[in-house]
Design a protein around this nucleic acid. Sequence first.
DNA 1: GTTGTCAATTGACACTGTGTCAAGCAAGCG
DNA 2: CGCTTGCTTGACACAGTGTCAATTGACAAC
Lengths: 210, 210
Amino acid sequence: MSSETIDTPTKIVQATLGLLERPNAKLPTMTDIARATGISRQAVYLHFPSRTDLLVAATRYQDQQNQVDAALAPSRGARSGAERLDAFVTAWGNYIPKIYGVARAIMAVTDTDAEAAAAWNTRMQDMREGCAAAVNALAEDGSLPPNTDIEQATDLLWTLLSVRNWENLTQTCGWSQDCYISTIRGLAMATIARDLGALTDVLACTEPPA
Amino acid sequence: MSSETIDTPTKIVQATLGLLERPNAKLPTMTDIARATGISRQAVYLHFPSRTDLLVAATRYQDQQNQVDAALAPSRGARSGAERLDAFVTAWGNYIPKIYGVARAIMAVTDTDAEAAAAWNTRMQDMREGCAAAVNALAEDGSLPPNTDIEQATDLLWTLLSVRNWENLTQTCGWSQDCYISTIRGLAMATIARDLGALTDVLACTEPPA
DNA sequence: GTTGTCAATTGACACTGTGTCAAGCAAGCG
DNA sequence: CGCTTGCTTGACACAGTGTCAATTGACAAC
């Protein structure tokens, strides 16, 4: 039933994602995208007014395809604040690799294109709400350190979980995904939930040399 | 004695830094730079073969002007590993704002220009050596957590101290420089030197609302 | 003073990439 | 048949990088 013919905008978006998801992808030009879709460059403009719009549409399509909400759901069902933080860090940390290709492209144009920057900010703001929810849950438990500003704790968690940090550790430094997750989780649990036991997970990764 | 007439390459570099250092600076074009220097666009090419070369020269000039080595010197004189880590984090953290303008410009072209990426990587690699030195000092003290891989600890410290994290916390979230320093220092001391007392500094910032 | 050299100037051009516009074509449908 | 819809080709304007050639002005050497 879903094997109906795919409409052109969707084909364009899929082709764009295909280009973006290959390792070491450069920013595709409109010509690249048209060629990958199998239509003319001008036809792309018939459906997307600008490259930025197309990139934004691509992220939306991808989120929908990946069921972000579903991936982040377990954290909403957690009983304690600490559990919630833990589940959220794990869920988001494992979601990043799926969106990294597109994220890189959007972050790259962010410096030159205000519209792209706005779109990316909105998306990160959504993620930030997850951070805020976890921090709030901790606050209700009373497991936040004394005198902690909730905003600040959210800022810190949000920064720890940034795509840039994931990129640094896994792409530049070559860490495994597991190692990334356990370290960042330990960091978050220790600094925000003051679960000092979590520190044993930090830097306790044995991985085969690359 | 130093009030001699400044040579043109230096004038160009200074003008470029001037453009880069204003808040919310866009990436300046060669025309912008020429205008700011007070010479023709073509004259810029007489001294720098490409925009990337110019940006790279600008970072070098700036490092030299700012005496990075001097700024990072105190950490080399530290007695214990923990002291050294502490001093390094503080020194680098306070150095970032001075280079942020240029750093932003270079990071922005990093996605499209391999040469710029290489230059920036080299620079970050230099910073990484400072991280490695601090981690090594801790290792000699025996104050690294058991079974810690030195490389991994260096990776983590290096990531915590990234310009992107500084940007996130101070520029996007609006943290004060002091707040940034004390939080990152606490994070580093707690996770790498296992100085749990340092956690009290994390999120313990009271700052007036923006 | 003439000559040479050097730095900078003007003006033109090639090239890449984005985004716009107009005319035409083919399919499907009333 | 004529109309609409989606796509095509081909041309163009615009911004920005980087290149090239011819010219000017200053300054020093002879």
